[in-house]
Design a protein around this nucleic acid. Structure first.
Lengths: 209, 209
DNA sequence: TAGATTGTTAATCGATTAACAATC
DNA sequence: TAGATTGTTAATCGATTAACAATC
């Protein structure tokens, strides 16, 4: 377990290993060769990625699916429950909240927020939409809410972010198409749906030629 | 205009340049230095990225915001209208369809599909949800539908993909958390919301330490 | 023990950055 | 013309891959 500077690309691949492993017989052993083949990576890369965090395989045999899955979950910190809030209960926020994946044990959505009068107070799946203004109080009351998913219009995303940071949020999954400025001890991941569509379009044009 | 092997990272950054430029005064000139600074890149990288596709700046002056925006749009092929269909009208598909960004001129959603009896025939924003079975006929009738956004459960994503490819779709934006197998002349971009959340969690844990 | 596959080191490849001549 | 900033080449840095000793 060295863990010097880990590249984001390594972490990205770890999540892909998880995706792949979850569809495999849990008691089986899988070699780096086989795992790589399923994802279009090289065996060396799989081994190198994992070696950043320790030794998880058995020489001559491979990796036990169940164990490797659990080990990667642990590396990512998703072996335990992480409390999450969603801010912005438009269609997208709503969809995410209802997404079965997001409601898995590892991410527990403990609060949903909006600022619109006609949404506040309404219930979705048995949880009430709260006023954004309650956020500070809510976070102080609840232990360990440090992840926020924000699905608000880009015009208010930075302002909201400043507020979230002030409330003690340490991690933000941002769906607004702007670069959020945050202090160094806060992390942001961006999902820009439209940008992805634009990228896809570029590759499509190339392929059509 | 050389355009040898363009790295996906370059294309990803191009979309970020667009995002940044759209919020700037259109007649102004911006230097690679200024543009880079806004995004946390280096000036050299901005110039290098652009130089893959031609010469867009004026030495001593910089890039005109309006022109650069238009040039990048053209590189990505989003200066013109691209017809898109969405398959899977669950909450996520619904949210995407209603997303104002997706309804911009450059991407025109011409059809929405599902396979569920109680969705087929319903209207959303004045467009009718069609039966997936109509897809082949629909695509053959409409000119130039070659992008599909798929928001179906992962259990049926590969099967659907095979069908889309058979119907002539060349580009797929996939929200299902699996690697889709497609022929070489078809491109796929993946958006795995849950994976992003897992990545975020890793960086959060690091920052909390 | 022999065969297989890991973990790791060294070699390669690609991407980023620094530097500067070209030129507006 | 002088100052600024591009486009591009060369140097650096980081990530991927090949190769192999370690070991199950």
């Amino acid at each position: 377990m060295k863990e010097e500077r880990i590249s984001p690309k390594v972490i990205e691949r770890l999540t892909k290993y998880l995706r792949c492993l979850e569809n495999l017989p849990q008691e089986d052993y899988i070699s780096s060769e086989e795992l790589a083949e399923k994802m279009g990576f090289t065996a060396a890369q799989v081994r190198k990625d994992l070696s950043n965090f320790g030794e998880f395989g058995i020489r001559g045999k491979g990796y036990q699916v169940r164990n490797l899955y659990a080990d990667i979950e642990k590396i990512l910190g998703v072996h335990k429950t992480n409390n999450v809030i969603i801010v912005g209960m438009g269609r997208l926020g709503n969809a995410l909240f209802s997404e079965p994946e997001f409601t898995k044990e590892s991410f527990n959505i403990v609060g949903i927020f909006d600022n619109s009068e006609n949404k506040i107070g309404k219930e979705i799946n048995g949880i009430k939409i709260r006023d954004i203004k309650e956020l500070e109080h809510f976070i102080n009351r609840k232990e360990d809410v440090n992840i926020a998913i924000i699905t608000v219009p880009k015009s208010v995303a930075q302002e909201l972010t400043d507020y979230l940071v002030k409330c003690g949020i340490k991690a933000i999954l941002n769906f607004a198409p702007i670069k959020l400025n945050v202090p160094k001890n806060v992390v942001v991941e961006n999902i820009d749906l439209y940008a992805k569509l634009q990228e896809l379009n570029y590759w499509k044009e190339k392929v059509l030629k």
